[in-house]
């Protein structure tokens, strides 16, 4: 019976949770690490802050379980709540999110993010994670948010649309423009060097 829980989909666990709240623990376990990393990428640097925000996120998720529509992705729904809570934290503290994007294995992601038209040139410049991170921090929030979800959280356009509550068409546009701006910033930096 216990093994079955791990094979269950999120929606099935939610069903169970509505009957018995302790099943909610599985939801917390499934998303704790992902959301913690996401929060970190959004700029919630302190572990304590992240723990507090995550606790609020999961309480909010639990409180609004009936608001979840099974025709949507549960993951996107949870990410949306987490995103909103992170934004609330910035507002409460009246601070600008500070990027903390570097993680092991992120180099490949950075290269992917900066690639596109004229990508070969960028590869030649031997980009490193540090430079891309700095460039990302200079990007407007709307571009940074989609790039993080797309390239770090590996989300599809529809999921990003659900997390950020923006039209699917805008997701593509923001990713495209975000990458262009990122390349522009990196190129400018290269020229300065």
């Amino acid at each position: 019976m216990q093994e079955n829980v791990h094979d269950m989909t999120d929606a099935e666990i939610i069903e169970k949770t509505l009957d018995d709240q302790v099943f909610f623990g599985h939801i917390v376990m499934r998303y704790e690490e992902k959301l913690s990393r996401y929060m970190q990428r959004l700029g919630v640097r302190s572990r304590e802050d992240r723990q507090d925000v995550l606790q609020e996120v999961f309480i909010k998720v639990y409180r609004n379980l009936h608001a979840f529509d099974a025709t949507f992705s549960f993951s996107s729904w949870v990410y949306r709540i987490a995103h909103n809570e992170a934004i609330s934290l910035y507002r409460k503290k009246n601070v600008r999110p500070e990027g903390h994007l570097i993680d092991e294995g992120d180099d490949r992601v950075f290269r992917e993010m900066a690639s596109g038209d004229g990508a070969e040139e960028l590869y030649d410049k031997e980009l490193n994670a540090q430079r891309v991170q700095e460039a990302l921090e200079q990007l407007e929030e709307k571009y940074r948010d989609v790039l993080i979800l797309r390239f770090f959280e590996h989300m599809e356009y529809e999921e990003i649309s659900d997390v950020l509550k923006i039209p699917i068409g805008s997701v593509g546009t923001l990713i495209h423009r975000g990458k262009q701006r990122l390349r522009k910033i990196l190129n400018t930096e290269h020229l300065r060097v």
Binding site: V22, F23, V28, E32, Q51
Partner: peptide
């Protein structure tokens, strides 16, 4: 504990 016993419960859980 019964519901979340197969995996180690985290502090957050």
């Amino acid at each position: 504990n019964k519901a979340v016993s197969t995996t180690k419960r985290t502090e957050l859980v």
